[in-house]
C-alpha cells in the first residue's frame, strides 16, 4: 500500500467552557500501517517544532482495553471501523486526500477539558453509586463454594468487558449512559454473588446516571454499534427489566421491624 496524505479538521478548545473551533492540519506521507493516534503524534511533533501548541487528546494503552481514547472521527465515536477503539483505528481505513473531522465527545455530562479531551468522571460516579459487590477483603467464602453456570458466567463476561470509554453515550443522540449502566448491572446481576445488592444497585445506578444529566434510551442501538467491545443492547433490556422489577419490589416489600440495639 502506498503512503497517503489527508487533512485533519480538528476541534481546538483552550479549556473548559471556552469557545472552540475547527482547525485544518495537513498530515502528509502517512504509512497506512500507522495508527490514527500515531498520526496525531506526528502532527503534534510538527506543531511543536512550528511553535504551536500540540493537540491534546486522551490515550494510554493503545491496545483497545484501557478506554482512555475517545475521538469522534467523521461523526462516529472511535472512527469508521466497528468493534475497535480510536487507538485501534489505522490510517489504512482512510483515503488519500480525505478530509477527516476529529472532535471530542459532545455531551453535557462529559465536558471538554481541552481540545479532544473530555472529563468522563461522571462514569466513575455512577460506579460509586452501586457498581460493586460489597465484600471486605478477607471475608470471602471459598471461591468454589457457589457454582456459577457456565452460560451465566459467559454472559456476565460479555457485559463485564466494558472499557468505560463513553462511546455509547457519545454515539447516542440522547447522550444516554444506558449501555454503560446496563453492562455493569447485568454483569453483577448475572453472578450469584451479586444478588444481595441487585435491587439497590440498579435503582441507585440509574438514578445517579439520571442525576448526572445523561439522557434516556430511545432504543435505537447506536450505542452498541459504536461500542468498541460490541456490548449488546440486550443488556439494556435486562437493565430495564431489573429496574422495573426492583421498583415494584421496593413498593410492595414489607418493612423490616427495626429494633433499636439493646
Amino acid at each position: 500500500m502506498k503512503n497517503i496524505s489527508v487533512t485533519l479538521r480538528v476541534w481546538r478548545q483552550a479549556g473548559p467552557g471556552q469557545p472552540g473551533r475547527f482547525v485544518d492540519y495537513p498530515a502528509r506521507d502517512l504509512n497506512p500501517a500507522m495508527s490514527f493516534l500515531e498520526m496525531l503524534d506526528v502532527v503534534n511533533d510538527e506543531l511543536t517544532l512550528k511553535g504551536e501548541e500540540p493537540i491534546a487528546f486522551a490515550h494510554d494503552c493503545r491496545e483497545g482495553i484501557c478506554g482512555t481514547c475517545s475521538l469522534v472521527i467523521n461523526g462516529k465515536p472511535h472512527g469508521p471501523r466497528q468493534g475497535v477503539a480510536s487507538c485501534q483505528t489505522y490510517v489504512r481505513s482512510f483515503e488519500d486526500g480525505q478530509v477527516i473531522t476529529v472532535e471530542p465527545y459532545r455531551l453535557r455530562p462529559f465536558p471538554v477539558v481541552k481540545d479532544l479531551v473530555t472529563d468522563r468522571s461522571a462514569f466513575d460516579k455512577i460506579q460509586q453509586a452501586g457498581g460493586f459487590i460489597t465484600v471486605r477483603a478477607g471475608s470471602a467464602p471459598n471461591a468454589n463454594a457457589i457454582p456459577v453456570p457456565k452460560d451465566d458466567a459467559e454472559l456476565a463476561m460479555d457485559a463485564a468487558q466494558c472499557i468505560g470509554c463513553g462511546a455509547c453515550a457519545a454515539a447516542c443522540k440522547n447522550a444516554s449512559a444506558m449501555l454503560f449502566v446496563a453492562a455493569r448491572v447485568s454483569h453483577l446481576g448475572l453472578m450469584p454473588q451479586g444478588q444481595a445488592e441487585r435491587d439497590r444497585r440498579v435503582l441507585a445506578m440509574v438514578q445517579t446516571a439520571d442525576g448526572l444529566g445523561f439522557g434516556s434510551c430511545t432504543n435505537q442501538y447506536e450505542c452498541s454499534a459504536a461500542c468498541p467491545k460490541l456490548i449488546s443492547h440486550d443488556f439494556i433490556a435486562r437493565l430495564n427489566r431489573d429496574f422495573i422489577k426492583a421498583s415494584f419490589k421496593a413498593a410492595f416489600r414489607s418493612e423490616p421491624n427495626r429494633v433499636v440495639g439493646d
Binding site: W11, G75, T101, E103, L107, P109, N174, A175, G215, T218
Partner: peptide, 10 residues
Amino acid sequence: SRRARGEQHD
C-alpha cells in the same frame, strides 16, 4: 435528552 446532548459538528 436535548439538554444532555452537546453540539456536534458532524
